[in-house]
Nucleic acid binder design. Structure first.
Lengths: 245, 245
DNA sequence: TCCTTACTGCGTATTCGATACGCTAAATAG
DNA sequence: CTATTTAGCGTATCGAATACGCAGTAAGGA
């Protein structure tokens, strides 16, 4: 096997490891561990995921996990691939814009099930089976645009960045809201107190317009922001395709 | 004073606190603490910032810091405002697109000095003096577009999201690269080994085109990606202004 | 001037997390 | 049956956040 040439975490994600022939039968599998970790993260938060908690949930000791995983960071990488599951296939024969919108909505719903996903640091280009499937799906949406491969990759990378940034921000803000709703409800009045119009003229104008005074339902707002930003980006992609494709 | 109505961290960021009249003179100021914390984060990483490290650097004991700051999280909020400093004023009389490009470049250089900034969770809408100055600057770039205030806010929020997402991704990837360059250099060959063309047809096509086989200098690549994505987004904004403004 | 009191700095101790190390026991190859 | 490989786990180390409460200091009032 030339698996040795693959980075260790990639090999793990694809479960390329010869099963050992000797020794006691493992009572744990990698999948058990990853699944338990994801369950904890879903139920509480990424911060609640500790090796001890995972082991406890599995009825094993903490150190047993290290037989399957080199470090907690490696486990996080595995979680980040496992959490995404597979994307729904794109509808047949739709144009690129419909395809990418569908794709972005899919990412949004997938990550909504695992909000902690947006907090994970991205360790490299998409390499796990699930991440790669999403990558493939987005690329294939651009199939008929006539863009060169490199440009497709650029557009998709930009889209990934945008979507993840949008999601991360929405979740951060939601967490901040849960933590301290006052900071949001009072935002308008806080700015009125604190933002001197001579120093912050544009902000003051906006404050006066009353935009900050009522925040609607949080969920709806971020949904709308997401769509708004996404459509802006896709407008940009359309202009790019018109220019280059 | 009605400072009581302000959220605690906001009051701290604006340094609205009556100086106590009795008792010993503080040997530390909040600014000392925040500055020390930022220096540590700059030199090493956010992970290296611990209350003990900060205190050590200031020649004080760990617990002394808690006289000035309620918790480490509160300190992080203070750091996130202090790190940004003030934006350079926009050039006079430029159109919105030039203004926002200038602004985005400014954000990029500001955060480059404090890479850890992109890792901080955003706790709420921009509320500190420096964050607010950046917000003001971006809003003022849109002054002459005729967009309603709410739309300006939407555009700016989208831009903030995009820029921060772009930066965060670039830094995450750079960290991953430093950690394990092999994962990047071998990316093409890894995909060839692992991505079955029947399961990942679009990825396979892209791999065959050779796009993944040579990664140029990392810095240059992310610079180019940043500009590419930014221009896509601004194209979208242009379309939006044409439609609505 | 001296005392009261609101403060500050700080020592101690607790709790929790990651993980190195090495032992013991199990399963299989020979 | 024995040697080897490998799994689970107990113990210990190290570092971090932070609760709690004591002790000393500087104003204001007597």
């Amino acid at each position: 096997m030339e698996n040795n040439e693959l980075p260790a975490d990639v090999a793990l994600m694809w479960r390329l490891r010869e099963a050992p022939r000797r020794g006691p039968k493992p009572s744990l599998t990698l999948d058990d561990i990853v699944r338990a970790a994801i369950e904890i993260a879903d139920a509480e938060d990424l911060g609640a995921v500790s090796m001890a908690r995972i082991a406890e949930r599995l009825g094993n000791s903490t150190m047993a996990l290290y037989r399957h995983v080199k470090s907690k960071d490696e486990l996080l990488v595995l979680m980040s691939d496992a959490a995404l599951e597979r994307p729904e296939p794109l509808p047949e024969g739709v144009d690129w814009r419909t395809g990418l919108t569908f794709w972005a909505d899919g990412v949004l719903t997938a990550i909504r099930r695992h909000k902690w996903y947006a907090k994970l640091p991205l360790s490299g280009p998409p390499a796990g089976p699930n991440n790669l499937a999403w990558f493939d799906s987005a690329l294939s949406a651009l199939q008929d645009t006539g863009l060169p491969e490199e440009a497709k990759v650029g557009v998709v990378m930009g889209l990934i960045t945008f979507v993840q940034g949008e999601i991360r921000m929405a979740f951060d803000l939601a967490a901040g809201y849960a933590d301290n709703p006052a900071a949001f409800v009072q935002y308008g009045s806080t700015l009125r107190r604190v933002a001197d119009p001579r120093v912050y003229p544009a902000v003051a104008r906006t404050v006066e317009s009353g935009v900050f005074d009522q925040t609607g339902s949080f969920e709806e707002d971020s949904e709308a922001d997401f769509d708004f930003g996404l459509q802006l980006y896709l407008d940009g992609v359309a202009a790019f395709i018109a220019r280059v494709g």
